[in-house]
Simulated scan of single mutants.
Amino acid sequence: MGCFLHKKTRGGLLLLVFITLFSTCNNNVDDNIGHVLNLAGKNRAELEKVLKHYASNVEDSLKYQAAKFLILNMEGKYSESYNAPWEDVATVNLRWSSSSDKSKVIETFNIGELIRKDDIHHITADYLISNIELAFQVLRDKPWGKHISFETFCEEILPYRIGTEPLENWREKVLASFADLNNSLREDSTITAVKACSKVNDILPRFRMDKDFSNMNYSQLMATTRGMCDSQAALAAFVMRGLGIPVTIDFTPQWKIHPTGHTWNSVSDSIGQHISFMGGETNPHNKHQGNTLQKAKAYRKTFQNQRIVEADKKDIPFLFQDNIINFSPSLDSFYSQIS
């Protein structure tokens, strides 16, 4: 696949070539976008506002394709959060690791039940437009941006959420928190996405391993810095993507010889190869559990909706209800990444 559109000044003809090359991540969207808009109900106007915003200008053709990608795959995405001050939620989280009676803790702190908000019914046009604009901005001003395909961009930089965390303006917060590093990455004309990933990973907060945390957004992860490996991987993905570095979240539900699983990250290099690392802990090309221990299967989380099991949702195992792809590389492939 070709290179990402790096500068607007490349002209209309080149833009047309890029649009043709990078329509991959939006196959059949025109046939399905109406279905999603109908599902949005009263929130349909917000989604249509985003599409109209980018449809009116030919220079925004790629952003229009990006908007359609997000909207087309919005079904099933949602936030789960407590309607309580974060201080109380954080305190409950921190107590869960030393209390087996979780219901009593929740009741005592009076944080209530988890509230679910489906994106398709609650997300705003302003939020989506801001997400799209900042995602394009951070990639276009980075030296490696011209090597990133639009398909990779859609999956590994563009998504506005990681899991079921409460939504926030995390891209603006990342750019504010890591402003100096972001400037140095823009100014280094020779730096690659992989090297940039290592620089960012070196200064991410180190986590204290703890369990039973609710799904946290960027601000909550930065404030708490406690959780399991999936929390580490989520924070790394927020920061990397916020700075224009294409990063995935990979996991195995179970090791071949251990009854537990593990989550880690991978960064996409200039030829589209994914190099694994452990967010906030181990840099690309170095050893970590994800590229040394044998896995029964390995999966990659995606924003694009996947249907890997053909059955009613109630009959699908919990693991396969997430949007994941099976990439299960051989152990030799993992070892080849280690220098």
Rank of each mutant, 00 (worst) to 15 (best):
R186W: 08
T192S: 15
R171I: 01
E165I: 03
K146D: 03
Y160T: 00
L181N: 09
R161K: 13
A176T: 10
R171W: 00
I148M: 10
A125E: 11
E151M: 02
T190F: 14
D180Q: 13
T192V: 11
E168V: 04
P166G: 06
R161P: 03
D141Y: 13
I123P: 02
D141Q: 15
E133W: 12
I132E: 01
F136V: 09
K142P: 05
K173H: 11
D126C: 06
L128C: 04
D188S: 13
K142C: 11
E151T: 04
A135C: 08
I191D: 12
T124P: 06
R186A: 12
R171C: 00
G145Y: 03
R171N: 06
V194T: 13
D188G: 10
I148E: 02
Y160Q: 00
I162R: 13
G145P: 06
H122T: 15
Y127W: 09
N131R: 07
P143I: 09
C154E: 02
V138N: 01
V194H: 09
V194R: 11
L175D: 13
N131I: 05
K146S: 06
I162E: 10
D141T: 15
R140N: 13
T164Y: 04
D141G: 12
L181P: 03
E168P: 04
R171K: 13
E133H: 13
N183L: 15
I132L: 05
E151R: 01
E187W: 06
K173G: 04
D126L: 14
A125W: 07
E172G: 14
I162Q: 12
F153W: 11
W170D: 01
T190R: 12
E172N: 15
I132D: 02
T164M: 06
L181Y: 09
L158H: 10
S177R: 14
R140H: 11
W170C: 00
R186I: 11
A135G: 09
L185C: 14
L167G: 05
E187C: 09
T124A: 03
E156T: 10
Y127V: 02
N182K: 13
A135S: 15
E133K: 14
R171D: 01
L185G: 10
E187F: 12
W144E: 02
H147D: 12
